[in-house]
């Protein structure tokens, strides 16, 4: 019986492998499914134009990607290339996609990881307090405000911040990353606005979810018992509200990283912060499909990985999942 439950956990992990397979398949199918020659999508209009006039070049390009072979063979070649870290050439940069992505991922991580950690901390505290005695007037209006924040486009919020802090008050640069040899002051100067914006949006997201979890647990009889025993405010929250929600909290943290990543994409564009999101934008503008797909794959892999880690962690920490009671 136990081995069966264990295997259902591994099935879950296997599912992430399947997700990665789907992501790669989407990348493979899209350029081949669209009307027109897939070579246009793989090499850009310019190379394609040259290749049309030069049959030899066309031949060699086709062979490299195995476009003359059957679809299943092409797929194997494609997967082989990806395993070797070959995501193709970006035709607008004239460099390998893998190189560009490797250069830019750190910039996105620099923005999202500190922001996620800080907002998990603040968002959890805020959510716990909003979810407890949630019917007070003040708490309801704060919750409504946090919900309302979700209907504001992040990039527009970014434009407003740039208008006020960069143009009117002249406090921050109008965008871009700090130069390579920048000192810590200059880095903080550049990262301040995007970081603050992303953190505010993440806090709004996390606190609403934690509020929901807390409200659910607060209705349970054991919480009433604990309160009637006279347990202190802090102890009650940590022992009876936070600990039981640790497992959902961990999966929330992972989901949140995914959310932060998607959210960061548009924020990066507005601030010209050259991370993955900005790269996607550049790729869209240039219709540089290999670069676009590379960036998409990178973002998806990070999100899938974060989800898988959260599942492993909740498996380790939550006996309910480990024993299979949750199903």
């Amino acid at each position: 019986m136990k081995s069966f439950k264990k295997s259902s956990f591994f099935l879950k992990i296997l599912r992430y492998g399947f997700t990665i397979f789907i992501i790669i398949s989407i990348n493979f199918i899209l350029p081949r499914m669209m009307p027109g020659d897939p070579l246009v999508f793989l090499f850009g209009e310019e190379v394609y134009g040259a290749a049309i006039r030069n049959p030899q070049l066309l031949q060699s390009l086709s062979e490299k990607y195995g476009l003359d072979k059957s679809l299943s063979e092409q797929f194997l070649i494609y997967i082989g290339n990806i395993i070797n870290g070959d995501f193709g050439q970006s035709f607008s940069f004239g460099r390998s996609v893998a190189e560009i992505i490797a250069e830019r991922i750190p910039l996105t991580l620099m923005l999202t990881i500190p922001s996620t950690i800080l907002s998990l901390f603040i968002g959890t505290l805020l959510g716990l307090s909003l979810g407890f005695n949630s019917n007070s007037h003040l708490k309801r209006s704060v919750s409504s405000f946090l919900i309302a924040l979700h209907s504001i486009p992040s990039y527009w919020f970014a434009m407003l911040l740039l208008l006020v802090f960069s143009l009117w008050l002249n406090l921050t640069p109008t965008g871009g990353a700090p130069p390579k040899d920048a000192n810590i002051i200059s880095i903080l100067h550049h990262i301040a606005l995007p970081f603050s914006l992303l953190t505010i949006l993440n806090i709004a997201y996390i606190s609403i979810i934690i509020r929901g979890l807390t409200m659910e647990i607060a209705e349970e009889p054991f919480v009433m018992t604990a309160r009637s025993k006279g347990l202190s405010w802090i102890k009650l929250r940590i022992r009876h509200l936070l600990l039981p929600s640790l497992a959902p909290f961990l999966s929330l943290a992972a989901m949140e990283l995914g959310f932060a990543f998607s959210g960061a994409l548009l924020v990066e564009i507005a601030f010209s912060w050259p991370g993955i999101g900005y790269t996607m934008w550049q790729a869209v503008v240039e219709r540089d499909y290999p670069l676009l797909q590379g960036a998409f794959t990178a973002v998806s892999l990070i999100v899938v990985l974060a989800n898988a880690i959260a599942d492993v962690l909740s498996y380790i920490f939550d006996p309910r999942i480990r024993m299979g009671e949750n199903e």
Binding site: R15, S262, L266, M280, Y289, F296, V303
Partner: peptide, 23 residues
């Protein structure tokens, strides 16, 4: 169920950007 789970994990906005760029 697997299809729902898979598409819940894949970040929607980046995928939409890619699909919209091809169409």
């Amino acid at each position: 169920g697997v299809i729902i789970d898979v598409f819940l994990v894949i970040p929607a906005l980046p995928l939409m950007i890619v699909l919209a760029a091809y169409l």
